[in-house]
Design a protein around this nucleic acid. Sequence first.
DNA 1: TACATTATTGTCTAAATAACAATAGTGTTT
DNA 2: AAACACTATTGTTATTTAGACAATAATGTA
Lengths: 299, 299
Amino acid sequence: MDQLRALRYFIKVAETGSFTKAASMFSVPPSSLSRRVADLEKSLGATLLKRSTRVVKLTEVGRIYYNDVQNILNQLELSNETVRSYQTTPKGRLRISSMVGFGERILMPLLDAFSEQYPDIVLDVSLSDELSMLGRDEVDIAIRGGYAPNERVLAKKLMDNRFIPVAAPAYLAKHGVPQNAIELRKHDGLYFRTPSGPTPWLCKIDGQWHDVTGRTVAVSNNGQWLIKKACQGQGILMSTRWALASYIQTGELQELTFEHELGINQHTDMAVYLLYQKQRYLVPKVKVAVDFLLASMKN
Amino acid sequence: MDQLRALRYFIKVAETGSFTKAASMFSVPPSSLSRRVADLEKSLGATLLKRSTRVVKLTEVGRIYYNDVQNILNQLELSNETVRSYQTTPKGRLRISSMVGFGERILMPLLDAFSEQYPDIVLDVSLSDELSMLGRDEVDIAIRGGYAPNERVLAKKLMDNRFIPVAAPAYLAKHGVPQNAIELRKHDGLYFRTPSGPTPWLCKIDGQWHDVTGRTVAVSNNGQWLIKKACQGQGILMSTRWALASYIQTGELQELTFEHELGINQHTDMAVYLLYQKQRYLVPKVKVAVDFLLASMKN
DNA sequence: TACATTATTGTCTAAATAACAATAGTGTTT
DNA sequence: AAACACTATTGTTATTTAGACAATAATGTA
């Protein structure tokens, strides 16, 4: 029995919920799938799929097996690709996942240059603040705000990701410049919403964190919109230096500095990390992309 | 092409370094392996093995692929076993790996009772202080002194593993009872050697760790031998409470207590952990063993 | 240089899988 | 309630793929 073929059939049937649909994807008659899956079940001594003529769905063991096998088949495909692309020129589809703001402001401009340099690499970029599963093999490279990756994943620090407070000169003229962090509580605020909720303003005084969140003017997960509002003088915004740099330079926004450390969570060592699977660095397209991005970020 | 078969052939050839030897293990002619491996190489577009009539060895890519594939095949075998044994009575070979001292004094006596309760489980116990690769699938259950496992591995605390200082009454009568940790430096010591080297005596005073190692009388990785020496009054020994309990109870050894915290490394929260892969808990033999050991340790 | 061993290749046989047609079962619709 | 449409399965044949066996070429050793 060709177990691997049986597994591929099983996976597709489980996903489509139909032998016929799955069969059409392999361009073989449904009877083949039926027989192969039956073989597989026989060899395992368990029924993986509960069938009726109308619906096919996974049994309890079936679901367990499906999860395992899907993962295993993905790994195998990765390994095959590694070998196939070994010592060839960088080419193929490169899947990159990035945080939205960072992707728009920093990553994508860089990728334009990257594409020119490596025209044979087809970029597949998805921006999302949800953390995608790097291990589950949906992306080749991920860019995320500081969190600890697992052992198989390498994390390279790209740049600082601490949040700094800014406001428009007009706002400060009208409401006054806060002299210390505690005073922020009396100010108008524009707040980021991360996947885990809106971000407060926090201040560390003598080792203790205090909430210094002000009045809420607006909340959004869209940095650009918040920055626009901040420029219009609608309130104080905390965002990252890389997002604000150009506005601070032109004077549209002004950085506020305080004696005590300010942040949006208690991890003060926030950074933007480039993540990739150690093994995948062997694949030329991944290698050149990692190298390119790391080199670019040094400027 | 039956890729899975080809992979199994490839693996065996790589391991034995010979098509003929590998073929005999599958009870097929060498020509079959030669053809299958050739197919595999063709489909990958890379040569995996460097052959001559006399020696067969892996190429650079071959080695990478071999490592990946071996791991993948192991995982698949585990998944198959999970399904096959799903909701059956506990049986089969159960591979347990444990630290030597703990295995001898605590684990093995328990396993005798376990074997009576589950006669269909064949125990395969190996004692070693080196950390075996749980992920690499050589054992079902591992018992280790406190270290952080990865995400897929569950770690259940079995018991405290802090090191406490003891000495024979005769030793204390002759050399005096040390009144504080610093005085240990003037005493004779019996020291454990772990895989990472001999263990010093450390003492935490006002948040700072100080080395209070005394004169070296003997060093060994064998706890029993060190305990014997301690009982003979040859010096002060730091070992775990579970190893020393019976000797303290009989009065052969006497626990020394100090104002400041004492240890053999800077991790004061040392414990003995039971480790197993999350998924494998579905396999009855693993489940009952984990449950049995955890229940037993509560006494 | 002769020898023994080994991987490979050619050819035939056996096994496994796909193809195709037909059947039986099930949920939906009128 | 009955006809309908769709689907999984099964029987049978054709095709593909792997194994068996003998022969060949290559290579390290004696």
